[in-house]
Deep mutational scan, measured.
Amino acid sequence: NKASVVANQLIPINTALTLIMMKAEVVTPMGIPAEEIPKLVGMQVNRAVPLGTTLMPDMVKNYE
């Protein structure tokens, strides 16, 4: 099973992601793959992301 990106803390709306906000975890359903973490740094979330939430592509602005 591949790990996904999971919020390590509450991430407020429009916050630019940093490494300490994210962790890799095997979850179902899968979200953004953990190997994308370096690419996510500096990208903004378009909603508040609660602690423990799996990051999905539609939660990150301009994620492709």
Rank of each mutant, 00 (worst) to 15 (best):
N14V: 12
I32V: 13
I11R: 00
A16W: 10
K2N: 15
A48K: 10
N1V: 14
T15S: 05
T54M: 06
Q44D: 06
P29L: 15
K39Q: 10
K61A: 09
Y63A: 02
T15M: 11
S4H: 02
M30T: 10
L17I: 04
L17V: 05
M30K: 03
L40Y: 03
T15F: 11
M21F: 07
P50E: 11
G42S: 14
A24W: 13
D58I: 09
N62P: 04
I11C: 03
E25D: 10
T53D: 06
G52Q: 12
N8T: 14
Y63K: 02
A16H: 05
A7N: 02
I20G: 05
M22R: 00
A3D: 14
M56Y: 06
T54N: 02
N62V: 06
V49W: 02
N46I: 07
A16C: 12
M59L: 05
T53K: 14
A24E: 09
P33R: 12
Q44V: 14
N46L: 15
I32T: 02
Q44Y: 15
M30N: 06
M21K: 05
P50F: 15
M21S: 03
I32P: 00
T53Y: 13
I11P: 00
G42F: 11
M43Q: 06
V6S: 04
E64A: 14
I11S: 01
L40H: 01
P38A: 13
Y63R: 02
L19H: 03
L40E: 00
P38L: 06
A24R: 09
V26D: 15
M21G: 03
K61C: 13
P50I: 10
P50H: 04
L55S: 00
E25M: 12
P57Q: 09
V27E: 02
V26W: 07
D58M: 13
V6R: 10
G42H: 07
M56D: 08
P33Q: 04
E35A: 04
P57A: 11
V5H: 00
V49Q: 02
L17R: 00
V5R: 00
E35N: 05
M30P: 06
T18P: 01
I20D: 02
V60S: 00
Q44G: 03
E36N: 11
P57F: 14
M43R: 12
P50N: 09
I13W: 11
L40R: 00
A7F: 01
I13N: 12
K61G: 11
D58S: 12
I11Q: 00
N14W: 11
L19D: 02
A7M: 12
T28K: 03
M59I: 10
N14S: 10
L19Q: 12
A7S: 04
A3R: 03
V49R: 11
Q9E: 14
K39L: 06
T53F: 14
P57H: 13
E35T: 07
N46Y: 14
M21D: 02
A48G: 05
M59F: 12
L19K: 02
K2Q: 15
N46F: 14
M21P: 00
P29V: 08
T28Y: 05
E64L: 11
V45E: 00
N14F: 13
P12R: 11
A48R: 14
V27W: 03
M30H: 13
D58K: 13
L55I: 10
G52V: 01
K39I: 07
P57W: 15
P12G: 06
E25R: 14
K2C: 15
M59A: 08
E35R: 03
A34G: 14
L19G: 03
G31R: 03
Y63H: 03
A16N: 03
A3F: 08
I20W: 15
G42Y: 13
I37G: 05
E36S: 09
P57M: 15
S4G: 11
M43W: 15
T54C: 12
M30E: 14
V27H: 05
V6L: 14
K23M: 08
V41K: 08
M56W: 04
T18F: 12
V60T: 02
N62H: 10
V6I: 13
L17P: 00
V27R: 10
E25S: 12
G42A: 11
A16E: 04
I32C: 04
V60M: 06
E35I: 06
I37S: 13
Q9M: 08
P33T: 09
V6N: 03
A3K: 04
M59W: 09
N1Y: 15
K39S: 05
M30V: 07
K23P: 01
Q44N: 06
K23L: 07
R47M: 04
Q44I: 06
N46M: 15
Q44K: 09
E35G: 06
